[in-house]
Amino acid sequence: MISTSAISSASDPQIACSELKAQLDLSLMTTIIFYCASSFDLSLLADAINSHFPDNECVGCTTAGEFNGAGYETDTIVAVGFHDSCFAIQSTLIENLTEFSTFDAQKTINSLRESIAEKALAHIDSNSFIFSLVDGLSAKEEVFLTNLDTFTNGIPHFGGSAGVGLDGNKTHVFYDGKFRTSAAIVMFINTKQKFSIFSVNHVDQCRSKLVVTDADARTRQVFEINGEPAASVYAELMGLSVDELDAEVFSLHPLAVKIGRDYYIRSIQRVNKAFYSLSFYCAVDKGIVLNEVSLVDINMPLLKKLQSIRNSLGSPHMVMGCDCFLRRIASVSKGVIDKTHAIQSEFNLVGFNAYGEHINGLHLNQTFTGVYISEEAYE
Protein backbone atom coordinates (compact mmCIF):
# COMPACT_ATOMS: atom_id res chain seq x y z
CA MET A 1 0.00 0.00 0.00
CA ILE A 2 1.21 3.50 -0.89
CA SER A 3 -1.56 5.86 0.19
CA THR A 4 -5.31 5.81 0.77
CA SER A 5 -7.87 8.45 -0.17
CA ALA A 6 -11.24 9.00 1.45
CA ILE A 7 -14.29 11.18 0.92
CA SER A 8 -17.41 12.14 2.83
CA SER A 9 -20.41 14.19 1.72
CA ALA A 10 -21.92 14.35 5.20
CA SER A 11 -22.69 17.91 6.29
CA ASP A 12 -22.26 17.11 9.98
CA PRO A 13 -18.50 17.39 10.79
CA GLN A 14 -18.57 14.54 13.30
CA ILE A 15 -20.25 12.19 10.83
CA ALA A 16 -17.93 13.31 8.03
CA CYS A 17 -14.80 12.63 10.07
CA SER A 18 -16.19 9.30 11.23
CA GLU A 19 -16.71 8.29 7.60
CA LEU A 20 -13.20 9.37 6.66
CA LYS A 21 -11.76 7.43 9.56
CA ALA A 22 -13.58 4.28 8.44
CA GLN A 23 -12.00 4.57 4.99
CA LEU A 24 -8.45 5.22 6.20
CA ASP A 25 -6.26 2.62 7.91
CA LEU A 26 -4.75 4.84 10.59
CA SER A 27 -2.34 2.12 11.69
CA LEU A 28 -0.43 2.66 8.44
CA MET A 29 -0.18 6.45 8.36
CA THR A 30 1.04 9.40 10.37
CA THR A 31 0.13 12.28 8.05
CA ILE A 32 -3.28 13.08 6.55
CA ILE A 33 -3.89 15.89 4.07
CA PHE A 34 -7.50 17.00 3.62
CA TYR A 35 -9.45 19.47 1.50
CA CYS A 36 -12.82 20.65 2.79
CA ALA A 37 -15.68 22.72 1.47
CA SER A 38 -15.94 26.13 3.11
CA SER A 39 -19.63 25.40 3.77
CA PHE A 40 -18.60 23.46 6.90
CA ASP A 41 -18.72 25.18 10.26
CA LEU A 42 -14.94 25.32 10.55
CA SER A 43 -14.80 25.49 14.35
CA LEU A 44 -16.94 22.35 14.59
CA LEU A 45 -14.93 20.66 11.85
CA ALA A 46 -11.68 21.42 13.68
CA ASP A 47 -13.12 19.82 16.84
CA ALA A 48 -14.21 16.76 14.85
CA ILE A 49 -10.81 16.35 13.19
CA ASN A 50 -9.02 16.65 16.51
CA SER A 51 -11.29 14.12 18.20
CA HIS A 52 -11.23 11.52 15.40
CA PHE A 53 -7.54 11.80 14.49
CA PRO A 54 -5.74 12.58 17.76
CA ASP A 55 -2.61 10.63 16.83
CA ASN A 56 -2.28 11.86 13.25
CA GLU A 57 -0.82 15.04 11.86
CA CYS A 58 -3.70 16.56 9.90
CA VAL A 59 -3.09 19.47 7.52
CA GLY A 60 -5.43 20.90 4.94
CA CYS A 61 -7.35 23.85 3.56
CA THR A 62 -10.73 25.13 2.48
CA THR A 63 -11.60 24.84 -1.19
CA ALA A 64 -13.63 26.12 -4.10
CA GLY A 65 -14.47 22.49 -4.85
CA GLU A 66 -12.98 19.05 -4.33
CA PHE A 67 -12.25 16.09 -6.60
CA ASN A 68 -11.22 12.47 -6.47
CA GLY A 69 -11.13 9.62 -8.95
CA ALA A 70 -14.91 9.80 -9.25
CA GLY A 71 -14.90 13.41 -10.48
CA TYR A 72 -15.57 16.91 -9.17
CA GLU A 73 -17.34 17.16 -5.83
CA THR A 74 -19.11 19.94 -3.94
CA ASP A 75 -19.67 20.34 -0.18
CA THR A 76 -17.46 17.37 0.67
CA ILE A 77 -14.25 16.67 2.51
CA VAL A 78 -11.55 14.69 0.69
CA ALA A 79 -8.59 13.23 2.56
CA VAL A 80 -5.37 11.43 1.63
CA GLY A 81 -3.44 9.32 4.11
CA PHE A 82 0.20 8.67 3.24
CA HIS A 83 1.52 5.29 4.30
CA ASP A 84 4.61 5.50 6.47
CA SER A 85 6.32 2.65 4.60
CA CYS A 86 6.43 4.80 1.43
CA PHE A 87 6.48 8.41 2.64
CA ALA A 88 8.40 10.38 5.25
CA ILE A 89 6.78 13.77 5.78
CA GLN A 90 7.76 16.82 7.78
CA SER A 91 5.55 19.91 7.87
CA THR A 92 5.69 23.38 9.35
CA LEU A 93 3.41 26.39 9.71
CA ILE A 94 4.12 29.91 8.48
CA GLU A 95 1.94 31.90 10.85
CA ASN A 96 2.26 35.37 9.32
CA LEU A 97 2.69 35.68 5.55
CA THR A 98 3.06 39.45 5.78
CA GLU A 99 6.31 39.17 7.71
CA PHE A 100 7.77 36.11 5.93
CA SER A 101 11.29 37.13 4.84
CA THR A 102 14.16 35.50 2.97
CA PHE A 103 15.74 34.74 6.34
CA ASP A 104 12.53 33.01 7.44
CA ALA A 105 12.47 31.03 4.19
CA GLN A 106 16.04 29.84 4.67
CA LYS A 107 15.33 28.87 8.27
CA THR A 108 12.14 27.05 7.23
CA ILE A 109 13.80 24.93 4.53
CA ASN A 110 16.86 24.18 6.64
CA SER A 111 14.70 23.05 9.55
CA LEU A 112 12.57 20.82 7.32
CA ARG A 113 15.65 19.23 5.74
CA GLU A 114 17.22 18.53 9.12
CA SER A 115 14.01 16.95 10.42
CA ILE A 116 13.41 14.82 7.32
CA ALA A 117 16.98 13.53 7.40
CA GLU A 118 16.20 11.65 10.60
CA LYS A 119 13.43 9.59 8.97
CA ALA A 120 14.13 9.70 5.21
CA LEU A 121 13.27 6.58 3.24
CA ALA A 122 15.30 7.52 0.15
CA HIS A 123 17.91 10.03 -1.00
CA ILE A 124 16.75 13.45 0.14
CA ASP A 125 17.77 15.57 -2.85
CA SER A 126 16.57 13.24 -5.62
CA ASN A 127 13.60 11.58 -3.93
CA SER A 128 11.80 14.49 -2.28
CA PHE A 129 9.38 17.23 -3.15
CA ILE A 130 7.81 20.18 -1.34
CA PHE A 131 4.07 20.82 -1.07
CA SER A 132 2.56 24.16 0.01
CA LEU A 133 -0.90 25.34 1.02
CA VAL A 134 -1.50 29.09 1.35
CA ASP A 135 -4.35 31.38 2.37
CA GLY A 136 -5.79 32.09 -1.09
CA LEU A 137 -6.97 35.63 -0.28
CA SER A 138 -3.81 36.78 1.46
CA ALA A 139 -2.41 38.46 -1.69
CA LYS A 140 1.04 37.39 -0.40
CA GLU A 141 1.64 34.29 -2.52
CA GLU A 142 4.18 35.79 -4.92
CA VAL A 143 6.59 37.08 -2.26
CA PHE A 144 6.15 33.96 -0.13
CA LEU A 145 6.83 31.57 -3.01
CA THR A 146 9.76 33.57 -4.37
CA ASN A 147 11.42 33.65 -0.95
CA LEU A 148 10.78 29.96 -0.37
CA ASP A 149 12.09 28.89 -3.78
CA THR A 150 15.37 30.70 -3.16
CA PHE A 151 16.39 27.98 -0.69
CA THR A 152 14.83 24.79 -2.06
CA ASN A 153 18.12 23.89 -3.81
CA GLY A 154 16.40 22.37 -6.80
CA ILE A 155 13.94 20.20 -4.89
CA PRO A 156 10.70 20.41 -6.91
CA HIS A 157 7.84 22.26 -5.28
CA PHE A 158 4.13 22.54 -6.02
CA GLY A 159 1.02 23.54 -4.12
CA GLY A 160 -2.20 25.49 -4.12
CA SER A 161 -3.97 28.47 -2.62
CA ALA A 162 -6.98 27.71 -0.43
CA GLY A 163 -10.38 28.52 -1.91
CA VAL A 164 -13.86 29.36 -0.71
CA GLY A 165 -17.44 28.99 -1.91
CA LEU A 166 -19.32 31.76 -3.68
CA ASP A 167 -20.81 33.04 -0.42
CA GLY A 168 -17.55 33.18 1.56
CA ASN A 169 -14.94 35.88 1.90
CA LYS A 170 -12.14 34.09 3.78
CA THR A 171 -9.92 31.16 2.92
CA HIS A 172 -8.22 29.01 5.53
CA VAL A 173 -5.42 26.52 6.01
CA PHE A 174 -5.47 23.96 8.82
CA TYR A 175 -2.49 23.13 11.00
CA ASP A 176 -1.98 21.94 14.57
CA GLY A 177 -5.71 21.58 15.21
CA LYS A 178 -6.81 25.02 13.98
CA PHE A 179 -8.06 26.75 10.84
CA ARG A 180 -5.96 29.84 10.14
CA THR A 181 -5.85 32.87 7.84
CA SER A 182 -2.83 34.81 6.53
CA ALA A 183 -0.87 31.61 6.99
CA ALA A 184 0.79 28.86 4.96
CA ILE A 185 1.84 25.26 5.40
CA VAL A 186 5.03 23.85 3.91
CA MET A 187 5.52 20.08 3.71
CA PHE A 188 8.78 18.31 2.88
CA ILE A 189 7.87 14.90 1.45
CA ASN A 190 10.45 12.15 0.94
CA THR A 191 9.33 9.01 -0.86
CA LYS A 192 10.49 5.72 -2.36
CA GLN A 193 7.90 6.04 -5.13
CA LYS A 194 8.70 7.42 -8.55
CA PHE A 195 7.08 10.84 -8.98
CA SER A 196 6.94 13.86 -11.23
CA ILE A 197 5.92 17.44 -10.45
CA PHE A 198 4.14 19.16 -13.35
CA SER A 199 1.89 22.05 -14.37
CA VAL A 200 -0.25 22.57 -17.47
CA ASN A 201 -2.55 25.25 -18.84
CA HIS A 202 -4.57 25.45 -22.03
CA VAL A 203 -3.35 28.73 -23.50
CA ASP A 204 -3.03 28.75 -27.30
CA GLN A 205 -1.87 32.14 -28.57
CA CYS A 206 -2.14 35.90 -28.11
CA ARG A 207 -5.03 37.76 -29.69
CA SER A 208 -4.39 41.32 -28.50
CA LYS A 209 -2.26 43.25 -26.04
CA LEU A 210 -3.43 45.55 -23.24
CA VAL A 211 -1.25 47.84 -21.12
CA VAL A 212 -2.05 48.38 -17.44
CA THR A 213 -1.85 52.15 -16.97
CA ASP A 214 -3.06 52.38 -13.37
CA ALA A 215 -3.01 49.69 -10.68
CA ASP A 216 -2.51 48.96 -7.00
CA ALA A 217 -0.10 46.03 -6.73
CA ARG A 218 -0.82 45.61 -3.02
CA THR A 219 -4.49 44.81 -3.57
CA ARG A 220 -4.03 43.31 -7.08
CA GLN A 221 -6.50 45.86 -8.44
CA VAL A 222 -6.24 47.28 -11.97
CA PHE A 223 -7.95 50.64 -12.37
CA GLU A 224 -7.03 51.51 -15.94
CA ILE A 225 -6.11 49.63 -19.10
CA ASN A 226 -4.86 51.65 -22.08
CA GLY A 227 -5.80 54.78 -20.13
CA GLU A 228 -9.48 53.81 -19.78
CA PRO A 229 -11.50 52.18 -16.92
CA ALA A 230 -10.27 48.59 -16.78
CA ALA A 231 -13.65 46.86 -16.53
CA SER A 232 -15.02 48.85 -19.46
CA VAL A 233 -12.04 48.00 -21.65
CA TYR A 234 -12.26 44.30 -20.83
CA ALA A 235 -16.05 44.19 -21.32
CA GLU A 236 -15.79 45.95 -24.69
CA LEU A 237 -13.10 43.48 -25.75
CA MET A 238 -15.50 40.63 -24.95
CA GLY A 239 -18.43 42.32 -26.69
CA LEU A 240 -20.29 42.50 -23.36
CA SER A 241 -21.50 45.08 -20.87
CA VAL A 242 -19.77 45.42 -17.51
CA ASP A 243 -22.90 43.99 -15.85
CA GLU A 244 -22.46 40.77 -17.83
CA LEU A 245 -18.96 40.09 -16.53
CA ASP A 246 -18.83 37.09 -14.19
CA ALA A 247 -16.67 34.08 -13.26
CA GLU A 248 -17.73 32.15 -16.36
CA VAL A 249 -16.64 34.99 -18.65
CA PHE A 250 -13.34 35.29 -16.78
CA SER A 251 -12.72 31.54 -17.10
CA LEU A 252 -13.39 31.46 -20.85
CA HIS A 253 -11.64 34.74 -21.75
CA PRO A 254 -8.53 35.08 -19.57
CA LEU A 255 -5.73 37.63 -19.68
CA ALA A 256 -2.12 36.51 -19.42
CA VAL A 257 1.41 37.86 -19.04
CA LYS A 258 4.20 36.59 -21.27
CA ILE A 259 7.44 35.53 -19.61
CA GLY A 260 10.01 34.30 -22.07
CA ARG A 261 8.09 32.22 -24.59
CA ASP A 262 5.32 31.18 -22.22
CA TYR A 263 2.03 32.78 -21.26
CA TYR A 264 0.90 32.76 -17.62
CA ILE A 265 -2.74 33.56 -16.93
CA ARG A 266 -3.63 36.33 -14.50
CA SER A 267 -7.20 35.40 -13.60
CA ILE A 268 -9.73 38.13 -12.90
CA GLN A 269 -11.42 37.74 -9.53
CA ARG A 270 -14.19 40.33 -9.74
CA VAL A 271 -15.38 43.67 -11.07
CA ASN A 272 -15.40 46.59 -8.61
CA LYS A 273 -18.21 48.71 -10.01
CA ALA A 274 -17.47 51.64 -7.72
CA PHE A 275 -14.26 52.24 -9.68
CA TYR A 276 -14.89 50.10 -12.79
CA SER A 277 -11.71 48.32 -11.81
CA LEU A 278 -10.74 44.64 -11.98
CA SER A 279 -9.34 42.63 -9.08
CA PHE A 280 -7.04 39.71 -9.90
CA TYR A 281 -6.02 36.47 -8.18
CA CYS A 282 -2.37 36.94 -9.19
CA ALA A 283 0.15 39.77 -9.12
CA VAL A 284 -0.52 42.77 -11.36
CA ASP A 285 1.13 46.17 -11.49
CA LYS A 286 1.24 49.38 -13.47
CA GLY A 287 3.08 49.01 -16.75
CA ILE A 288 2.64 45.29 -17.34
CA VAL A 289 1.24 43.99 -20.60
CA LEU A 290 -1.82 41.77 -20.33
CA ASN A 291 -2.46 39.57 -23.34
CA GLU A 292 -5.90 38.44 -24.41
CA VAL A 293 -5.27 34.80 -25.27
CA SER A 294 -7.14 32.09 -27.11
CA LEU A 295 -7.52 28.65 -25.53
CA VAL A 296 -7.33 25.06 -26.69
CA ASP A 297 -9.47 22.16 -25.45
CA ILE A 298 -9.10 22.35 -21.67
CA ASN A 299 -8.62 18.60 -21.25
CA MET A 300 -6.03 17.82 -23.92
CA PRO A 301 -2.87 19.40 -22.36
CA LEU A 302 -3.53 17.61 -19.07
CA LEU A 303 -4.25 14.29 -20.73
CA LYS A 304 -1.13 14.48 -22.90
CA LYS A 305 1.05 15.41 -19.91
CA LEU A 306 -0.27 12.54 -17.79
CA GLN A 307 0.13 10.06 -20.64
CA SER A 308 3.71 11.21 -21.15
CA ILE A 309 4.54 10.80 -17.46
CA ARG A 310 2.91 7.36 -17.42
CA ASN A 311 5.10 6.29 -20.34
CA SER A 312 8.14 7.34 -18.31
CA LEU A 313 7.25 6.37 -14.73
CA GLY A 314 4.67 3.60 -15.09
CA SER A 315 1.06 3.36 -13.97
CA PRO A 316 -0.23 6.04 -11.61
CA HIS A 317 -1.02 5.28 -8.02
CA MET A 318 -2.44 8.78 -7.57
CA VAL A 319 -2.12 12.27 -8.97
CA MET A 320 -2.37 14.79 -6.16
CA GLY A 321 -3.51 18.00 -7.81
CA CYS A 322 -4.40 21.65 -7.39
CA ASP A 323 -6.88 22.53 -10.14
CA CYS A 324 -7.89 26.17 -10.56
CA PHE A 325 -11.59 26.61 -9.83
CA LEU A 326 -11.96 28.59 -13.07
CA ARG A 327 -10.92 25.48 -15.00
CA ARG A 328 -13.80 23.67 -13.36
CA ILE A 329 -16.21 26.43 -14.39
CA ALA A 330 -14.84 26.33 -17.95
CA SER A 331 -15.14 22.55 -18.15
CA VAL A 332 -18.82 22.76 -17.22
CA SER A 333 -19.49 25.76 -19.47
CA LYS A 334 -17.87 24.10 -22.49
CA GLY A 335 -19.83 20.90 -21.95
CA VAL A 336 -16.71 18.72 -21.63
CA ILE A 337 -17.15 17.69 -18.00
CA ASP A 338 -17.51 14.00 -18.94
CA LYS A 339 -14.06 14.04 -20.56
CA THR A 340 -12.67 15.77 -17.48
CA HIS A 341 -14.15 13.08 -15.25
CA ALA A 342 -12.70 10.36 -17.49
CA ILE A 343 -9.20 11.76 -16.95
CA GLN A 344 -9.80 12.05 -13.21
CA SER A 345 -10.83 8.40 -13.12
CA GLU A 346 -8.09 7.03 -15.41
CA PHE A 347 -5.27 8.66 -13.44
CA ASN A 348 -6.88 8.76 -9.97
CA LEU A 349 -6.77 12.53 -9.59
CA VAL A 350 -7.29 13.63 -5.98
CA GLY A 351 -7.21 17.23 -4.80
CA PHE A 352 -9.03 20.53 -4.72
CA ASN A 353 -10.09 23.51 -6.80
CA ALA A 354 -7.73 26.31 -5.86
CA TYR A 355 -7.59 30.09 -5.98
CA GLY A 356 -4.04 29.83 -7.35
CA GLU A 357 -1.44 27.18 -8.05
CA HIS A 358 2.23 27.04 -7.05
CA ILE A 359 5.17 25.54 -8.89
CA ASN A 360 8.86 26.13 -8.23
CA GLY A 361 8.45 29.67 -6.91
CA LEU A 362 5.69 30.78 -9.30
CA HIS A 363 2.11 31.65 -8.44
CA LEU A 364 -0.18 30.70 -11.34
CA ASN A 365 -3.84 30.83 -12.33
CA GLN A 366 -6.00 28.55 -14.47
CA THR A 367 -3.57 25.65 -14.37
CA PHE A 368 -3.64 22.07 -13.18
CA THR A 369 -0.56 21.67 -11.02
CA GLY A 370 0.33 18.52 -9.16
CA VAL A 371 2.49 15.50 -8.50
CA TYR A 372 2.16 12.19 -10.36
CA ILE A 373 2.93 9.37 -7.92
CA SER A 374 3.71 6.07 -9.63
CA GLU A 375 2.88 2.57 -8.52
CA GLU A 376 6.57 1.83 -9.10
CA ALA A 377 9.28 2.54 -6.52
CA TYR A 378 12.84 3.63 -7.18
CA GLU A 379 15.34 0.78 -7.03
Rank of each mutant, 00 (worst) to 15 (best):
M1C: 12
M1P: 09
A6H: 05
S8T: 09
S11K: 15
C17N: 05
C17K: 02
S18V: 04
L24F: 02
L24C: 03
L26N: 07
T30P: 02
T30L: 08
T30E: 09
I33W: 08
C36V: 13
C36Y: 03
C36R: 04
F40T: 01
F40C: 06
L44Q: 14
L45R: 00
A48H: 01
A48I: 06
N50A: 08
N56P: 12
N56R: 10
T62Y: 02
G65A: 11
N68A: 10
N68S: 15
E73L: 15
T76H: 04
T76V: 04
G81W: 00
D84Y: 05
F87S: 03
T92I: 06
I94W: 02
E95T: 10
N96M: 05
E99H: 14
E99I: 13
T102F: 11
Q106E: 10
Q106F: 08
N110Q: 14
E118K: 15
K119P: 06
F129G: 02
I130A: 00
L133G: 01
D135H: 01
G136E: 02
G136N: 03
S138M: 03
S138P: 05
S138T: 08
A139C: 14
K140E: 04
E141H: 10
E141I: 04
V143Q: 09
G154W: 09
G154L: 07
I155A: 00
S161C: 08
V164A: 13
F174T: 03
K178N: 06
F179W: 02
F179Y: 05
S182T: 08
V186S: 00
M187K: 10
F188I: 01
K192S: 14
K192M: 13
K194Y: 08
F195W: 08
F195Y: 10
S199F: 06
S199G: 09
H202G: 05
V203L: 00
V212G: 04
D216L: 11
R218S: 15
R218C: 13
T219A: 11
Q221I: 14
F223K: 11
E224K: 13
I225W: 02
N226V: 10
P229A: 08
P229H: 02
A231Y: 01
V233E: 04
A235N: 07
L237M: 15
D243H: 11
E244F: 06
L245V: 09
L245R: 07
D246E: 12
A247H: 11
F250H: 06
S251H: 03
P254L: 07
R261A: 13
D262F: 13
D262S: 15
Q269D: 14
V271C: 05
S279P: 04
Y281A: 01
C282R: 05
G287E: 04
V289K: 11
N291K: 13
V296C: 12
V296F: 10
I298R: 03
M300S: 15
P301W: 12
S308P: 03
I309V: 12
S315I: 12
C322D: 08
D323N: 12
L326V: 09
S331C: 12
S331K: 10
K334S: 11
G335V: 05
D338H: 13
K339T: 14
H341N: 14
A342Q: 11
S345M: 10
F347K: 09
F352N: 02
N353I: 07
A354N: 09
H358P: 00
I359L: 05
G361Y: 00
L362Q: 01
H363S: 09
L364G: 01
T367S: 10
F368K: 07
V371E: 01
I373S: 02
A377V: 12
